[in-house]
Design a protein around this nucleic acid. Structure first.
Lengths: 343, 343
DNA sequence: CTGAAAGCGCTAACAC
DNA sequence: GTGTTAGCGCTTTCAG
């Protein structure tokens, strides 16, 4: 293994010079710099991560914690993880993947050991177990999702309330008066992850303002469940002409069932989904949808955590905590249309 | 930050004793051990990862590289990643997540810097760019997937050829004679990722042995694509009564289309899928399927890489390289039945 | 603009 | 069964 000392000898300079060439923390004359860089290349030198971390007490690693509840939509998680990893690299950081199995201890362990010098938490619950730690740890942390008490926390999420309102606005514009929400699995609400409630709240709020009627029913993704939910909806509110779906798994079954029941989309029923763009575009009927901006969320989380990391040590209020709710965007596709005139 | 030296002082022992209590690499008398452990707890001591890595030249980190081609099925990747992270923790290791954006350089960087002391590569192509590095690096590596030349490599994968054969056997037993394979997107074949070809090869091989007829058509997951593929199949081979699907995205559209065309599953058409159990169980018609054992693959990859890591340094042939193909298992559900008598 | 040198916190001989 | 100590490879004052 080639060390910095060897590079220094090879280039005929001191160790510190090599170090500074690498970090750019002090000005180096062009000739020396080039000589050093050449030596680095020729010797195939890679700075040792452990030594660097020890000497600088910065590991250049961001911990990404994702407690993987079975009912979460994996592709979105995955997209976020990828965006986090990609963006982290742009800041010369790597990403350590932590799952939920160890519980809050995992976070304690990685920051306590200095393995990670920042962390990003996914799948945040309203009363998340990790929050106490996040609040006391000196390392910067960003949550993807919104707990109930956000004091002193930096969070990133889609603005789900606005999302709910946006869906209603769109349907209202098309003349729909009775709408239904096919929600997430009951487990999601019980776990109180927040985002599902927030969407429904937004829907209810705007619907009230516009004098529309809303029926909300939870629904796990299975075909049977969707069939049941749909049956109940049309049973209780036969006039329902607009549906908002928030559970990706329920989408294809829903379209399939509507078709079977002879309800044409969008002629008889309009459907708005809250899901990744990719899903919306690939379904049997292209879906009017509000995108879940997984990439942006991942990227933003890293940017925020890095900003706070950069300012770390400069006192407590270097960069103030901040709640960043991404504005929803609705894309009109083929699944929504004017409400049926006859009612 | 509390250090090992502080723990030692607090417990009234030497630094090495604390270190050995932690590592268990030498016998410590019960009283001393307890005293030390108590100090560790009271002081809230966490060994510093960087220092440890530097002194021991082992980071206890496994790099997991997943070049995320857009056409890969994310949930499977995710499941593998989770299994890898979980299993790694059982071996006191953490997982560093690397994406494909940096290319083979990422691998070079993390092993060169000693950031990771082992690696697991996912989404392996037949002529993978990372193979040269893997072959020369002193760090143990395991591939998930099979390149064309496996010399000196340790690989884990589902035995896709056997999977193909198994599907055919099942259909043959039910009396089907004409079968079709709805394959992966053309891009998957072009990229030469291997697994798609291997399945088809297995299908062809067994079909030949049994005198059955096979039609293989690639298909991206979109509804249109599935419709087109299906049309071609029934056009060219009207007698087709069994279908093997290997593209998860195509499954629900396929079932939906068959239904629309008045082809009952399984009365008119039997469908066998190659997909995760979760997918097979949740579709509108529960699918007879061969499971993609994502968890087992992730777990096994870690076990293998750890076995090689443990034996590292003891000379070249400590643990021989090894190809581990998991045997496929077919679960009969509601989507397959006897071939229609009239043909 | 460059060097010398003092650690960073831990591991693993080497001693007893 | 326990203590002493020499590094591991790098960063970062302090000097010049």
């Amino acid at each position: 293994m080639v060390t910095l000392a060897e590079v220094a000898r090879h280039a005929g300079v001191s160790a510190s010079t090599v170090s500074y060439v690498l970090s750019g923390k002090r000005t180096i004359s062009l000739p020396t710099r080039e000589r050093v860089e050449r030596s680095i290349r020729e010797l195939g030198y890679h700075p040792n991560a452990g030594a660097r971390a020890l000497a600088s007490s910065r590991s250049n690693i961001i911990a990404l914690m994702m407690p993987l509840r079975t009912d979460m939509y994996l592709p979105v998680m995955m997209e976020i993880a990828i965006a986090v990893a990609t963006t982290a690299r742009e800041h010369a950081h790597d990403v350590l993947l932590l799952t939920g199995q160890e519980g809050p201890d995992a976070a304690r362990r990685v920051v306590g050991s200095g393995l990670a010098d920042a962390m990003i938490l996914m799948d945040v619950e309203l009363e998340d177990q990790r929050l106490p730690l996040v609040r006391v740890t000196p390392r910067p942390a960003v949550l993807i999702g919104l707990p109930s008490d956000t004091t002193d926390l930096t969070c990133v999420d889609l603005d789900f309330e606005a999302t709910g309102r946006l869906c209603v606005d769109h349907l209202a514009t098309l003349g729909h008066r009775d709408i239904a929400v096919v929600g997430e699995a009951a487990a999601v609400y019980e776990r109180r992850t927040g985002f599902a409630e927030r969407t429904v709240r937004g829907v209810r709020q705007r619907a009230d303002e516009l004098g529309m009627r809303v029926l909300h029913r939870p629904c796990d993704g299975s075909y049977e469940s969707v069939a049941g939910t749909l049956a109940r909806i049309f049973d209780e509110r036969p006039a329902t002409s607009g549906i908002v779906v928030q559970n990706e798994a329920a989408i294809e079954p829903l379209l399939s069932l509507l078709r079977q029941q002879g309800r044409a989309v969008p002629e008889d029923i309009s459907v708005v989904a809250v899901c990744p763009e990719q899903v919306a575009a690939g379904t049997s009927v292209a879906l009017t949808s509000v995108a879940i901006p997984a990439q942006e969320m991942g990227r933003l989380a890293v940017e925020l955590v890095m900003a706070r990391a950069g300012a770390a040590g400069q006192g407590p209020s270097a960069v103030p905590p901040r709640i960043e709710l991404l504005p929803p965007a609705l894309t009109v596709r083929a699944s929504t249309g004017p409400a049926p005139a006859a009612r």
